[in-house]
Computed example of a mutant assay.
Amino acid sequence: MRFIAAVFIAVFLVGCGYKPVSKITKDMIGDDIYVHVTIDRADPKSSVWIADSIKEGIVSRLNRKLSSDKNAKTKIIASVKSVSLQALLYDEDGYVSLYKAILKMEFDTKFENGKIYKSVTTGEYDFTISQKIKDVRYADSVISETDRYNAIKEASKEAFDEYLAALAVKGFKNVSNNH
């Protein structure tokens, strides 16, 4: 029974012209991509972490090569609009034990054909803080540099995934309109 259901779903998806988001996005952006993340003067460390995360996403999720500005078919300029940490949960003593990192980014993409696509995305990541110091009460509410780094990195991955999904929808709409 499972085999029949699996075959039916496979035939249905192929018959509908299903195409994964990564495939649509790969087709749109080409092989060589230049990525630049504008450094935020208020928080330069976060910008570097975000740049690393986006470049890692291009290579690992899309299996594309990073290129120099001159040789790239597609250029992605990303900028951080805002980074904030929001308290979500307090312990019995009133200290924050759970935070949410919220990252808002803008992606400006210039394609080989000269068209430009702009997208504003948001990434979020909930995290608990490290509680390494038990004797000092205020230590339970302090966000370590490592916690902040991991939270911003994970939020940037989500913002990048949202960007890829928006790009795929745009690509799908363009393909649909051409037929």
Rank of each mutant, 00 (worst) to 15 (best):
M1Q: 08
I4M: 10
A6V: 05
F8P: 02
F12H: 04
F12R: 04
F12V: 13
V14K: 04
K19Y: 01
V21R: 06
K23N: 12
I24G: 01
T25P: 01
T25K: 00
K26H: 08
D27Q: 09
I29W: 07
G30D: 09
D31L: 07
I33Y: 04
Y34E: 10
V37C: 11
V37H: 12
I39M: 10
S47K: 04
V48P: 00
I50Y: 03
A51N: 15
D52L: 08
S53L: 06
I54V: 15
E56T: 12
G57K: 10
V59D: 03
V59K: 12
N71R: 06
K73I: 09
T74G: 12
I76W: 10
A78W: 08
A78G: 10
A78F: 02
S84A: 10
S84M: 13
S84F: 08
L85C: 01
Q86D: 13
L88N: 00
L88K: 06
Y90N: 12
D91P: 05
D91Q: 02
D91F: 09
D93C: 02
G94M: 07
V96W: 05
V96T: 15
V96Y: 08
S97K: 14
L98K: 13
K100P: 01
I102G: 00
M105C: 05
M105N: 03
E106M: 09
F107C: 03
E112S: 12
E112V: 03
E112H: 07
N113A: 03
N113T: 02
K115D: 11
I116G: 03
I116V: 15
K118R: 11
S119C: 14
T121C: 08
T121Y: 07
T121N: 08
T121K: 03
G123Q: 04
G123W: 02
G123P: 04
Y125M: 12
F127E: 03
T128C: 05
S130T: 02
I133D: 15
K134T: 15
K134S: 13
D135R: 05
V136W: 05
A139D: 04
S141L: 04
S141M: 06
I143C: 10
T146E: 12
D147E: 11
D147K: 02
D147G: 10
Y149K: 13
Y149N: 10
Y149C: 05
A151H: 00
A151N: 06
A151W: 05
I152N: 05
K153W: 13
E154I: 00
S156Y: 03
K157C: 09
E158D: 13
A159C: 09
A159V: 04
F160G: 00
L164N: 01
L164S: 02
A165I: 15
A166P: 02
A166M: 07
L167P: 01
K170T: 00
F172P: 00
K173T: 14
S176Y: 11
N178Q: 15
